[in-house]
């Protein structure tokens, strides 16, 4: 192999050059970014699995705008949620009065005290299993809404919500999917 005056061959200099390039690149990856961090998976996971997790505005915005992130979130809910209520049957039309899946039934009852409010009643079939702490409504337009659930009483969770809220609208929409975790 040809050698330079100093005794190092060209291949050896290549090794040194590639090492320097790799070191510089590794330094750039871990150095001051100069750009905004991506939405990390850990943050997405915390939002999907921790009822009390307060999402950053950046996460909610990214869920609105980033199709891949929305797909990831929906997939995460499908794999980690204890109960999944799929889109209602094609025959259904209008606002649902109840929706049901294996292990869970959700019904809606108008509030007598306030016509603008509605009770959402979640009945869980397996009262021995840990009750879910969060409810997610995923729209056909890929929007995601989350609400932390109060503690279940004898397998029953009751929420009092504004009847025209996005969440209630979503729960009663045949095109949405609902996840309980």
């Amino acid at each position: 192999m040809a050698k330079g005056q100093s005794g190092q061959g060209p291949g050896e200099f290549d090794f040194v050059r590639q090492t320097l390039d790799a070191a510089a690149l590794a330094g750039r990856l871990t150095g001051p970014a100069g750009c905004r961090a991506a939405i990390g998976f850990a943050e997405l996971y915390a939002y999907a699995t921790e009822p009390a997790h307060a999402p950053r505005a950046e996460l909610l915005l990214a869920l609105d705008e980033d199709e891949r992130l929305r797909g990831d979130f929906a997939a995460l809910l499908r794999t980690t949620a204890s109960i999944h209520l799929p889109q209602a049957a094609a025959a259904s039309s209008g606002a649902l009065s109840a929706r049901e899946a294996e292990g869970c039934r959700i019904t809606f009852r108008d509030s007598k005290a306030d016509a603008a409010q509605i009770y959402v009643i979640i009945e869980l079939a397996d009262t021995s299993a840990p009750a879910p702490g969060s409810l997610f409504v995923c729209g056909a337009d890929q929007t995601v809404r989350k609400i932390a659930l109060p503690e279940a009483q004898d397998g029953r969770i009751q929420l009092l919500l504004e009847a025209d809220s996005d969440l209630v609208q979503g729960l009663r929409d045949i095109d949405t999917e609902v996840f309980l975790r």
Partner: peptide
């Protein structure tokens, strides 16, 4: 790619970094 690395480095658990600096450097290498 840098934004992804930034996210890994900024991941926290109870307000403390989830991954040590050494681990992040090892990943970058």
């Amino acid at each position: 790619l840098i934004a992804v690395f930034q996210a890994v480095q900024e991941t926290t658990i109870n307000d403390l970094p989830k991954f040590s600096r050494k681990t992040c450097h090892e990943l970058a290498r």
